[in-house]
Design a protein around this nucleic acid. Structure first.
Lengths: 129, 129
DNA sequence: AATTAGAATTGGAATTATTCTAATCACATC
DNA sequence: GATGTGATTAGAATAATTCCAATTCTAATT
């Protein structure tokens, strides 16, 4: 094991961290698992998930996801944005004025042809303050 | 059955649509299933999913999700935004200048205490034009 | 340095979310 | 009303993620 400050980097966590550090891509948990096995063949899937959560909490790696556990459906069809509570998962609609300029910038930076754009605000809802 | 224009609204699809129309919330597929059963007890989970996809494609209902099938992990820790290809699912980082004003507006509209904010641009990547 | 108690970590098993595909159904044509 | 064809359904399978009992580690005690 390897302790730095309050950090506990077991060999499993080190393997997972190394996989992330060595990749420039946005890996899925499954891809991390496959790569981590090469370094540490005995590692399990659950441990990869545990390690990813730990490393994310310790701010050693980044995570890309919406913040919900599952897809939501609703009757609102117009373009709008969302706020997601990091405490209770509550999801509310908000309507932000997105400038054409921002969309243009997004297209230029990504080289994508934009179809839609949405802002996700993560934070605490009034009940979770 | 019930055909309007090129629309095919079977009783299953009507039940699912009604559930969405009758709710002000952002329902999960599971919640839609539970409600739809009350209208049409024989409906299956898979049919709810099929119907949700159909209704979304026909622009009769809205869908809220990131656009990926699973969470991604990466070594980038600084705030940044993402572009997701609706063709191939490719995910790329972009760095948009988010004004403090936009965050303030988001907080005001949602009554949330913002922790982070992210823009998601959905569209077609260069390869999927 | 062996023992032990408590906390942290691991990973097999379970759960939850979603998709696949074979069977069924609806509709048109003979 | 039999038959072909394409759309729709839903049971079964898969994929993504989490739970929790067993194990391992740590550090205090002898």
């Amino acid at each position: 094991m390897n302790n730095v400050g309050s950090l506990t980097l077991t060999k499993q966590r080190q393997a997972v961290l190394q996989v992330i550090q060595d990749s420039t891509k946005h890996l899925t948990a499954n891809e991390v698992f496959e790569d981590a096995r090469r370094v540490l063949p005995s590692i399990s899937f659950a441990t990869v998930y545990n390690s990813l959560r730990y490393l994310r909490n310790e701010r050693l790696i980044g995570e890309v996801r919406f913040g919900m556990d599952s897809t939501r459906y609703d009757r609102t069809l117009t373009r709008h944005d969302h706020a997601i509570c990091s405490g209770c998962g509550n999801l509310v609609d908000i309507d932000l004025p997105i400038s054409d300029d921002l969309i243009k910038k997004g297209e230029r930076l990504s080289n994508f042809k934009a179809e839609s754009i949405e802002v996700v605000l993560r934070g605490l809802c009034p009940e979770c303050v």
